[in-house]
Design a protein around this nucleic acid. Structure first.
Lengths: 206, 206
DNA sequence: CTCCATTTCAAACGATAGTTTGAAAACTGG
DNA sequence: CCAGTTTTCAAACTATCGTTTGAAATGGAG
């Protein structure tokens, strides 16, 4: 029982993800989505019961894509030294700098939400952010074995902040006055530099 | 020659700053602004030549307010030890966490711009970000006397990232699963904790 | 007070937004 | 192949957007 409408559904989701990532919820019109997806305008209401329902689906997919990627990589980090695990974590966090791929779009959608969270996003975050935060807290916990839980959570966020500022402001930082390069070698250098500093901080604190 | 229209102008600017900070450029309607400012709808076009012109003025005021505050505080940091100067810088960066004051609104406007920069913002940034970045690079430069300019710029951004993630995501972090408190004592603890880690990183790197 | 530029105002404009409609087309199970 | 459901489609609907208009009100200079 293959559903013929799945093709339309997927086309809408794909187009909507790109546009929501690029222009945000308010800045993206139904007409822009259907034009890119090559479907009829009423298809969105038929398949998703409106713009908001479509956005909900895009948000869920983005969240799933991001956390699954992070959790999968973190599963094997126990075999690495804490320093190598930290460096790998930071390099993965900086990955969206390299290409405008799917992960990059997912992060952009999250960036929009971080400015003005929708109720849909709030719910998603409160329900499903715990595993990802667990990965990060476990990582810093290997450096801070005596720290309490609150400190570990703050340390995890602090670590994420060191990466996210480069990812989030990629566009501005590529121009003057910073002129941050985005070729593979430069990003690798950036990842190693941040890893060195973060390692120094955690080692001297633990 | 006092201009009677200044009252209307200021009322519009004040209302617009609040709404742009809260809902972003696209999410804020002219009608919402004039309703809050208690002025006629056409006043915006009369005084600012349209919504975009008004936004330009709000953006300029926000930029001025933020950087002036930072630059003024940085002027006397040369008398402090590098560790104390760093701690003060971090504490000032975290200030918007304490209250929803003017600085908090300015930062929110910048957050909107970091997701999808308007041409107005790009120009402003490329022309006037240098002094502020200079303060930050000078600060980290006291820890990294042998580093080249690119490394100092990256270190400055890296330092800003450690603070901005808490400021930017204040709303989400105050809820589950993080439950970050925002009373004065908690923020002071946060500032000292970040200062300790950042100091450790820069000391071990320099 | 009078004159004239400045400022305010209510109303309407064209454009675009998200959604609804009802019929046509396509597909599926029998 | 047919009957009945699912899916697509062009068009129109209502609401809201930013902007424009032209007259009314206001304020200061002579």
């Amino acid at each position: 029982m293959t559903r013929p409408s799945e093709v339309t559904r997927e086309r809408i989701l794909k187009a909507a993800e790109r546009l929501f990532a690029e222009r945000g919820y308010d800045g993206t019109s139904i007409r822009a989505i259907v034009a890119r997806a090559h479907v009829n305008q009423a298809a969105i209401n038929y398949h998703f019961e409106g713009k908001e329902g479509l956005y909900r689906e895009v948000l869920r997919a983005a969240f799933r894509g991001l956390t699954e990627h992070q959790l999968a990589s973190a599963a094997q980090s126990g075999q690495l030294s804490r320093e190598d695990a930290l460096a790998g974590f930071i390099r993965r966090q900086l990955r969206p700098l390299l290409a405008r791929d799917e992960a990059s779009r997912h992060i952009r959608i999250f960036n929009w939400e971080s400015v003005r969270p929708t109720p849909v996003f709030r719910k998603l975050l409160s329900e499903e952010a715990a595993p990802f935060m667990g990965v990060a807290t476990d990582l810093v916990g290997r450096f801070l074995p005596t720290a309490d839980h609150r400190t570990l959570v703050v340390a995890a966020i602090w670590l994420l902040g060191q990466c996210s500022i480069f990812v989030r402001n990629r566009e501005q930082l590529s121009g003057p006055p910073v002129e941050l390069a985005s070729d593979e070698a430069s990003i690798e250098w950036l990842a190693q530099t941040i890893s060195r500093w973060a390692t120094g901080a955690l080692q001297s604190a633990g």
